Amino acid sequence: MCTHLGEAMVLGRGARLLAGAMAVACLLLMGPSAPGDALVVRPLPSDAPRDVVQNRVMTWNICNPCEESDVERAAEIATYAPQIVGMQEACVRDVERIRAYLESLYGLVYHVEYGTVLRHRGRCGGTPWNPGAFGQAVLSAAPMTDHVNVEYPDGGSEDRGYMAVTTTVDGEPVRVFNTHLAHRRQEAIRAGQTDVLAAAVARHERAIVLGDFNAVPDAPELARMWALATDADPQCHPPSAGTCELTTDWHSKFDYVFLRGFAPLEHRVHPTPYSDHHLVHADLGPRNRTPRSAP
């Protein structure tokens, strides 16, 4: 029952919030997400959206193993309430909790698909015979279809891959990809992974590619992605990559929202204490629209 709350509840926001007690009971049955994790609801900023923001997409490497609170992770996402969220370094159990908190505490209902690339007790807990699933995940306020999960032929020092789903953005179907490329200092491996990903992306005129690419914008291994798509940060493109907003605690841009068939109307990067990667989100429109200037 707990894993199907989002599909079962198609009520208005007020009615969904009244169902919070049932969802919270499910969360308690699932157990804590990290040592000291408690159901303490952090008030959102006064200007936080009250419902999902249509055509807003987000990418976030949520950090693992970091023992962060899934309650706080949910609050970070709810502060911006994107229509689509791509998460990397995601354990299935953590995503289940985040999704349930988003619904029970903030009235934000999401569908979910997973891009598991390995089962690892050190990453995600569990038992030696049933370790937790680790990889990518996509939350979407609109239904998703045609889910695929692809492991790269060479993951490098750890298995890596991409997942893809079809959903609706700006009233039209779009293919959404979510990936996490090989660790830093594995440039040749990332180049091979980007070749695999780019070949899949190239088949779609309308595509959104979210992820942690572990590479700065002018890295050679990203050349095929730049040939296919633009970044949601309108000032960010090689060779003038010095104008890109940084997305990590170590002052690099590794996190991207690549677009085909869309224009970014607004792009934001938000540092967070709950991960070594910042939250990156963009509001999208048709390709011929003019981006809004930042205040």
Results as ranks from 00 to 15, higher is better:
6 G>M: 10
8 A>I: 09
10 V>Q: 15
13 R>Y: 08
14 G>K: 11
17 L>I: 03
24 V>D: 13
30 M>I: 07
44 L>P: 03
48 A>K: 07
49 P>Y: 04
49 P>L: 07
51 D>E: 11
52 V>T: 07
57 V>W: 02
58 M>Q: 10
60 W>F: 11
61 N>V: 04
67 E>G: 08
73 R>T: 03
74 A>Q: 01
81 A>V: 00
82 P>T: 03
84 I>H: 07
85 V>Y: 05
88 Q>D: 03
90 A>H: 06
91 C>H: 04
92 V>L: 10
94 D>Q: 14
95 V>R: 02
105 L>S: 04
106 Y>G: 00
112 V>P: 10
120 H>T: 09
125 G>I: 07
134 F>R: 11
135 G>T: 04
136 Q>R: 08
138 V>F: 02
143 P>F: 10
144 M>S: 12
144 M>C: 13
148 V>G: 05
148 V>R: 14
148 V>Y: 08
152 Y>M: 11
154 D>W: 00
156 G>T: 00
160 R>I: 03
163 M>R: 00
170 D>E: 12
172 E>V: 14
175 R>A: 01
179 T>V: 15
188 A>E: 15
202 A>W: 01
203 R>K: 15
216 V>W: 11
217 P>V: 03
224 R>I: 09
231 D>L: 04
237 H>L: 12
242 G>D: 12
250 W>I: 14
263 A>K: 09
263 A>G: 10
269 V>T: 06
272 T>Y: 09
274 Y>R: 12
282 A>G: 03
286 P>F: 03
286 P>E: 04
